[in-house]
Amino acid sequence: MAAVNAIEVRDLAFAYADGTPALRGVSFAVAEGECVGIIGPNGAGKSTLLLHLNGVLPETPDGSGAVRVFGAPITKANLYEIRRTVGLLFQDPDDQLLCPTVGEDVAFGPRQLGLGGPELGARVTAALARVGLAGFEARSPHHLSRGEKRRVCLAGLLACESRVLVLDEPTSELDPRGRRGIEALLASIPATMLVATHDLEIVVELCSRVVVLDHGQIVAAGETVALLSDEALMLAHGLERPHVLRHRHPHE
């Protein structure tokens, strides 16, 4: 018997309150330790999908089992356990960093889990060191660069010791140096990862498998290099073959 999948999505459908369908029959699975990319044009439903993975959507967990985390359906009872297991990185770090200082912000998640005292302090210090921002505890988020803000957000997830990281556009709006920093950081994290992004270069670097989402449906899924080299598929869904693959043979 194979190990339970870290994330399993089966026939997930979702429509916003105004009736706009956002997801239609989405199914896929992510094994523990795997890194999977989710790509697709703007408005394909990527962010909506990610919000389902730690129970932010639907607003009251229905326990339907459309989303399972390590085999468990999301219910009201295990909601906080799910949120501890699955860490969500939001696209705009200004939405996620909500405390007056970096230290407090990294401590926000663990504190919600009931942690406090020296153990909390140790976790914050370790998480900040991990993302290369040791000693930033007393800094204010608004004095940080965008790349630094992203890394503080990541530290907040690491401090929760989340086993699964779900990342929404982790490299958007970053300069090349900031982007490289995030890429190296993500490559060093052993957790299971799901990355939704337009940055196909980073998908090639990090992800072994890719899921292509368009109009709320999965239109293709498969091994990264093979899929991203399919020029026709990429163009059909508002994407393009990444430059790194232009000079690489699909079966290399």
Partner: peptide
């Protein structure tokens, strides 16, 4: 969006 992020981070 902040509310969504707070929820995602386990805010009760």
């Amino acid at each position: 969006r902040v509310f969504t992020a707070m929820c995602a981070r386990g805010w009760r």
